[in-house]
Each structure stands twice: as structure tokens, then as C-alpha cells.
């Protein structure tokens, strides 16, 4: 099996997210694992209706959530305003405070318990946009270290949260994206115990390309480990490693 580095935190987060009944429980579990103060998931443009209703789950204090809604802060909040058009994850320290309304909003947020540092991850799937935000009270340098360490894990976690939200909201999972022939081939050989080096020799591809195919296959199957992805692919009868995968 391809040796992948998967930290205990990511595996724990994955288990807890899948076990959680409600999305909010998943968010609470997530912030415990990563020692985050508050977590928010915001899915924009949900069911197309006359009113465009976003789907939001947050662990911020109720008083702040109420104040946020009453004052219509969503129109001012730079995290949401930028987060729903940005493509790349961003540190809140990158946000340029444009006017006094934004400054006032940020001061009010701090006064109502929102911690100083944040990291927001845009989630873009084939038809929707969402944003996962992690909010923390640790100081600047410590936050930078956290981001450096967990950035790629948090991006994976954001995808898991998003899938959970879609399931909770629509009552069904998104159909699995079609796996390409190369992805199936790589999964097939991975299921037979080959690592990326072995697969690259068998398929005459570069190691990086093999890893890329496997990563894409893993994403499409919604799994954070390759072992889970190969198992799922077998269950779905996409590959038949001990028979003959028709590829």
C-alpha cells in the first residue's frame, strides 16, 4: 500500500465527523481535536428559491449569532464577503479593512467573544460554494505555526464537513464523480499492495502522476486514506483487484 502520512488528528477528525449526527456536533468535535475556539460552516446559494437562503452552522456564542443576524452583519463581514469569492484558503490577517463599517464590525465581533485570529477555507464543488472558518484566540506567531502545520489537513477536513452538510441538507450524497481509467488502474494496483513507485513502473508513469491520480480518486470517493478509497472502490465494484479490473 502506498505509504501516506496521515496524522492522528486528521484520522480522528474524519471518524468524528462521520459519526456526528448533526453538523454542529461535527464542528464541535473538530474544534476539540485541533484546539480551535469557534468553527463556522457557511454554504452559499442553497436550494434555489425566491429567497437565496444560505445554510450556516456555527459554534459562536448565541448572543453573537443573534446580534450578527439582527444587525445584518453578513453584508459587512469581510470574511464572508471575501470568502465566498476567493478561491484559496486565507488567514484573516490578509483581510484589508476597507472602511469604518468593517472596522466597527470587527471591533464589535471582538467585544462579543469572536477570537482574534482566523483561517477560512473556500470550498468549491461542481455546483456550490461554501466556506469553513476556524477561529482561534492564540497569538499571531502561534497561529502562523498552526496554519503551517495543519493547513493541508484542514483543507481535507473542510471537504469532509462540506460532504456532511450536503448530506444533511439534501438528505442524499452527491453522486460520486466518474473515475477515469487511469485513476481506476492506479487504485487497482494500489489494492494489490503496490506503492506509488511500483505503480509508476507498472503503468510507465511518473511517481508524481501516480500520486496525483490516486489523490484525485481518493477525493472523488470522499476518502481521506488510500486504504479507505480502495476498499470503497471494491465495494462499489469499480475495481476487481483479484478478478480482472476491466480497464
Amino acid at each position: 500500500m502506498t505509504t501516506e502520512f496521515h496524522s492522528k488528528t486528521l484520522l480522528a477528525a474524519s471518524v468524528r465527523i462521520s459519526e456526528a449526527t448533526e453538523l454542529t456536533d461535527a464542528l464541535i468535535a473538530l474544534q476539540k481535536i485541533y484546539d480551535i475556539d469557534f468553527t463556522t460552516y457557511h454554504l452559499a446559494h442553497t436550494i434555489s428559491d425566491i429567497v437565496d437562503t444560505p445554510f450556516v452552522r456555527t459554534t459562536y456564542q448565541d448572543a453573537w449569532v443573534a446580534r450578527y443576524l439582527l444587525r445584518g452583519y453578513v453584508r459587512v463581514d469581510p470574511v464572508i464577503q471575501e470568502g465566498l469569492v476567493r478561491q484559496l484558503p486565507f488567514d484573516w490577517r490578509e483581510i484589508a479593512v476597507k472602511d469604518s463599517a468593517v472596522r466597527a464590525f470587527m471591533l464589535d465581533a471582538r467585544k462579543h467573544g469572536v477570537a482574534q485570529n482566523g483561517f477560512s477555507i473556500p470550498i468549491i464543488d461542481k455546483s456550490r460554494r461554501a466556506l469553513l472558518t476556524l477561529n482561534s484566540g492564540v497569538d499571531g506567531p502561534a497561529w502562523t505555526r498552526r496554519i503551517t502545520r495543519y493547513r493541508s489537513e484542514w483543507i481535507e477536513v473542510a471537504q469532509l464537513i462540506h460532504r456532511k452538510a450536503v448530506l444533511q441538507l439534501y438528505g442524499t450524497r452527491d453522486p460520486i464523480l466518474l473515475l477515469s481509467q487511469r485513476e481506476l488502474e492506479c487504485l487497482h494496483w494500489a489494492a494489490l499492495g503496490n506503492d506509488a513507485t511500483g505503480i509508476s513502473t507498472i503503468l510507465n508513469l511518473s511517481q508524481h502522476t501516480v500520486k496525483t491520480y490516486l489523490k484525485s480518486a481518493r477525493y472523488k470517493l470522499g476518502c481521506i486514506t488510500l486504504a479507505a478509497a480502495t476498499t470503497k472502490a471494491r465495494h462499489l465494484r469499480l475495481i476487481h483487484p483479484y478478478g480482472n479490473t476491466p480497464i
Partner: peptide
């Protein structure tokens, strides 16, 4: 992970060519 040009362009000629999907791709 979102809509991409290459997938749409190559879908007709090479359905499997540009179909890599992941947040880091």
C-alpha cells in the same frame, strides 16, 4: 474541484484526460 475549462474542452475528445479532481490540484 469546481467547474474547469480543460475538463469541458477535452471531454469530447479525451473523456478521461483532464479529469483530475482534488483541492490541491
Amino acid at each position: 474541484t469546481g467547474p474547469t475549462l480543460l475538463y469541458d474542452v477535452f471531454r469530447s475528445t479525451f473523456p478521461n484526460a483532464c479529469d483530475l479532481v482534488a483541492p490541491s490540484i
